[in-house]
Amino acid sequence: MAWWTALGSDLDEVWRALLAGATGVAPVASAHPLRNDRAAAVGDLPAELGPEQRQYELAARAVRTAVSDAGLDVTDPRLRLVAGTSHGSHLDVPPDRLDRWGETLAAGLGMARRPLLVSTACSAASDALLVAAALIAEGEEEVCVVGGVDVLTPAKRLGHSALGTMSPTELRAFDERHDGTLLGEGAAFLVLERADRARERGARIRGRLSGTGSANDAAGPTAPDLSGDTVVRAVTAALAAAGRGPGEVGVLNAHGSGTPVNDDVESRGFARVFTDGKAPVVFATKGAFGHTLGATGALEAVAVLLALRDQAVPPVPGLKTALPGFPLPLPGGAAPLPFTGNVGLSITIGFGGFTTCLALEVPA
C-alpha cells in the first residue's frame, strides 16, 4: 500500500507525523475570495501543474509505490486498476468522458488492461475497494491495485465556500466548536488479492479486507439523512460480511469531516450500533490531510491498517471538547491513544447519500 499526502509520502514517516498531532493544513493562495484560504496541498508537486496533470502525477506516484510494495510490476498482465475520484479535475477542466483520466493513467503507467473507475463523491475510494473485493471474491479478477485520488482546485474551493460547508476557522471533527471542513488533496492505493495467492508468492500481507457494506439515504444532493440510518446499515452490513460483531471492533476511522451535520449523523449512527460491550476508539484524519474527497476512503483504509499494526490512534486535530453525548472514546489532546483489538472499520459519507464501511483486520 502507499499514500501521497500533504504530510508526505513515506508510510511510516506520515504515520509518525499523524501520531504526533501534525497537520498539513496551511494557507494556500487563491485568486478568488474564499470562506477560508487554508487547505492541505501536496508540497512536492510543482505549483504550476494544472488540475489534470496534478491528478495524474499524484495517482501515478501512489500506484507505482503500492505495486512495488506488493512485490509486483505495474505492467503485470494480471493487474487491474480500480480507482475512485470525486470530481478530480473535472470541475475546472470539463472532460469529454468522466473516465478519461483513469484511462490516461493506466496507459501512462504501461498497464496491460483498461481500468475500472468509480465516482461516488467522497466515498469513491471506499467504493473502489468494495468493487475490487467483489471482483476478486467472484473470481473475475486475480489481483487489483485499488484506491483513490483527488486534487485541490479553484472550483472545488469556491464550491465548498459557496455551499457553506467550508469552515471559516479550522477543521475540528467531533468538537463542540465544529463549523465546517477544509479541503485537501492526496492519493492512496492498495494491492488486493486472495490471501492464498499472496502467501504462495511470498508477498508481505499488511492486512485483510474482511467485509464491506454500503447504503444510500437518497435524502438530497449534499446533506445526509439526519437519522443516522445509512451509517447503521453500512456498518452492520460490513460487520456481517466480515463475520464480526460490534464488540469485536477495536478502532474506527470516522468520516470526521467537521461539518455539524455529518458529525452529528455519525454520532447518532455509532450510538445505535455500539450499544453493548467493548467500545471502539474513534479517530479522524481530515484535520491533518484535509478533506480529500474521492481519495478519502483509501487514505483512511491505510490509516486503519497502520493503527491496527501499532495498536494506537493519532489525536484528532483541533479536538478539545468532544460533542456532548458522543458515544465512543476519542483521542483529544496531543498524544496517541492506545487500544486493543485486531478489527478496524473505516466509514465514509459522501454527497448524494453514499455511505460505505470497510472492515479491515490484521492477525491477532
Rank of each mutant, 00 (worst) to 15 (best):
R204K: 14
M166G: 01
G24A: 13
P154N: 00
G352D: 11
D69C: 09
I136W: 02
T321Q: 08
V261M: 09
G213D: 11
W3Q: 09
N262G: 15
H87I: 08
R208H: 08
R80W: 05
V74G: 01
E13P: 09
P46Y: 02
S86D: 03
L226G: 12
P363W: 11
V151D: 06
I205F: 08
T120H: 14
C144M: 07
A187V: 13
N342S: 15
G159F: 04
I349F: 05
P95D: 07
P94G: 02
D263Y: 02
Y56E: 12
W3L: 13
G148V: 10
A132S: 15
V231E: 06
T356L: 09
G147R: 02
A60N: 01
R38T: 10
L305P: 05
A26H: 12
R197L: 15
R80M: 10
A132R: 11
A125C: 10
G164R: 00
T230A: 15
S257T: 15
M111R: 00
P95T: 01
L11D: 09
L116T: 15
L34W: 03
L130T: 14
V67R: 06
S89C: 09
F174V: 06
V118T: 11
G245L: 10
S167G: 04
T356R: 12
T165F: 04
V42P: 06
P317A: 15
A2L: 07
G202M: 13
G245Y: 03
L252E: 13
V343N: 01
A241C: 01
Y56V: 03
D96N: 03
T236Q: 02
A40M: 11
P224M: 14
L105R: 01
T321R: 11
V143Q: 12
L190Y: 02
P33R: 08
G287K: 10
M111D: 07
T5H: 07
D217W: 11
P27I: 02
S123N: 10
A195V: 09
M166V: 07
D225I: 14
V191Q: 01
L163A: 07
E57N: 02
T285F: 11
A215L: 03
I349M: 15
L306Y: 10
A303Q: 07
L34H: 01
A364N: 09
Q311A: 14
S167Q: 03
F283I: 04
L79S: 00
T275M: 00
L91R: 05
A31E: 10
R199M: 14
A31H: 05
E103V: 12
L158M: 14
S167N: 03
G245W: 03
T75L: 00
T23G: 04
L337C: 10
H90E: 07
E300D: 15
P317T: 12
R35E: 05
L319I: 07
L34M: 02
E52R: 14
D10N: 14
V131F: 13
A137H: 15
G220W: 13
G147L: 04
R272T: 01
G352N: 08
R114K: 06
R194H: 06
G245R: 05
G341L: 12
A133G: 13
L129E: 05
E361Q: 12
T321P: 00
I349A: 14
L308I: 08
F174K: 06
F326S: 09
A112K: 00
I136P: 00
V74Y: 00
V282F: 01
Y56G: 07
H178D: 05
F351A: 12
T340M: 13
A334C: 06
T355D: 12
D150V: 11
A162W: 03
G341S: 08
